[in-house]
Design a protein around this nucleic acid. Structure first.
Lengths: 185, 185, 185, 185
DNA sequence: ACGTGCGGGACATCCCGTTATT
DNA sequence: AATAACGGGATGTCCCGCACGT
């Protein structure tokens, strides 16, 4: 089970790339295997649950990666919430959105699968909750109550996700610049 | 006359419902025809461009409907930007996000089609630009410059779109409540 | 019944062009209507028997046109069989084969429809018989018996049809030049 | 090993039978799979290029088979061109044309696909060239120059192809008998 | 004679998941 | 752990034929 064989790894990476570019339904298994140079025959050895399981694991990694990235930023700008928020938005802007091949995986899955696939919905809710908590941690100070921080974190997360969508559609980083300028604290 | 035929209309409505529930790729043409009670044989009479054209027209209607809804709210709360913004968020919360069968069509298409389909990307950019402009119009007053209003409008739009995603994933209207409380002006 | 309305005429011409370019099955009714600028609604007024009837009438015209072309050549070179044969081949070479959009309609139909569609097979047999007779008429002289002329005519017709196929595949008029040089009499 | 699998072989044979009976466009993939008892799911495993690739391979085999058949006849009647030509025509008459389910595959493809599909046209041209060369080889002797042999070979090939068409339409072997009697040397 | 619209089936393609074999 | 092969269903597209109304 702690199987980190390269093939499996490549599959996860290839799948993430495709899911973020075109969504879940449009990313055929064959295409995933192809761009991963994945061993076709043993796909169901690694992922007996098929495409759906693969998606779940990809999302899990994605969620964790996101959370730790946020926490790293929070630590770096500890005690300076304003700087932290700016850094957060800038990071998102730089990383992904403008180059339109990468959208937010969680957003894609929320739109495509959430209502029909309860398990997926739960997983997504958990991920967003963790992200929000991580952001709230970066916002903490004596001035704001915990509850207020959580609420602000939620708003910030919403703005971030929305900016990603807008940036992808407009092929511009203007949305990120706009939310950087807003007053969040 | 040809464009107002009931069958065509039903097709557009059924397609919108499905696209918003499951996205573009996962919504098969057969399913669309079924829920629309659409005449199968004449689908390509109404939409010679196939599914892609259908999506384009659905999006067009959706974009226009959204814009006029925003403008209506702006007019109703003319001169009271704060109230306008609150009304905007409340409307979005009530309308769509919580009942998880409806996500934002523009968001779906941005994630699924934008990078591969330039024309779609342009259409989406235009729609988001119009929405932003409509919001900016509701924000206008002597106190804020036009440019500032446009930037704020972009941030508000981003928060709104993001809140929709979060609400869908979390099956809760908490995201909307969070952005209502944020300071936007 | 003596309906020579332009629309009907255009339909026949457009259908012939398409049938000769791509064959029967590959030429959709929609395509035929399009290139004929044909009135879509009244197609089944002109041709109640549908595509199959259209094909029959197109073939009929084609057969008659071919026969009279042969007879005209025979008359022009009356008493000079060798010249007649050469003229026959040259005419075929010039008319159709090299420009690869036109193959012999009778050949197409023979290959696509003949065994399955008895009526079509009969029609084709009749046309080829008339062509052969027309060629035989051009070959007639005191030197050759009627029977011998008919046999030679058949061979000439075969060579002509075959040369058309070869010319189309090779995109060259070499096949016609080859049969011109052969000794036919 | 993969290319000799029985299923693949059966597919090729079934496809040839149908293509020769009804042509390319009229032969649906489902029909091909059915008469081949072909494994439906793995069709695109064997032929990733789809129906078009299948047609290409069928034609390739057909072309090669024809060539070696001609060469065998040439060898058998070596030094006796007249006998060779007669044998050639008799073989064609016996083999295929009369039983109207089989027309010449190359002819079918030349008529249906050649103008739209350049690659196919090239393949067809190559096959006819090889057949002509094989016939020319059977015609070789001290009496005729190489060039003359090639030209005669082309005329013979044309006659042969044409006779096939006529025989199919007339449901008779008369066309073959006619070209046997003609003077070819 | 003609435009518009419908009915339902067939098309080639490609899908995801499972075998048996190694 | 991977290959080759299979099963059968779903995809979007387009087909031909036939209604209506004018």
């Amino acid at each position: 089970m702690p199987n980190d064989s390269t093939a499996r790894e490549r599959l996860l990476e290839g799948a993430e790339a495709l899911f973020r570019k075109q969504g879940y339904a449009a990313s055929g298994l064959t295409a995933i295997l192809e761009i991963s140079a994945g061993p076709k025959g043993s796909f169901y050895f690694y992922f007996p649950g098929g495409k759906r399981q693969l998606a779940g694991e990809v999302l899990d990694r994605y969620g964790r990666r996101g959370e730790s990235a946020i926490r790293a930023l929070a630590q770096k700008h500890s005690g300076e919430p304003a700087k932290f928020v700016r850094a957060l938005f800038r990071a998102a802007a730089k990383m992904e959105a403008t180059q339109c091949t990468k959208s937010c995986l969680a957003q894609n899955f929320a739109n495509e699968l959430a209502p029909a696939d309860m398990e997926m919905a739960d997983q997504l809710a958990a991920i967003f909750a963790r992200w929000r908590a991580a952001i709230a941690a970066g916002l903490a100070s004596e001035k704001v109550s915990r509850k207020a921080a959580e609420q602000k974190a939620m708003a910030i997360l919403a703005a971030l996700e929305g900016a990603r969508t807008l940036a992808r559609a407009m092929r511009s980083s203007a949305p990120f610049e706009a939310i950087v300028e807003a007053e969040w604290l």
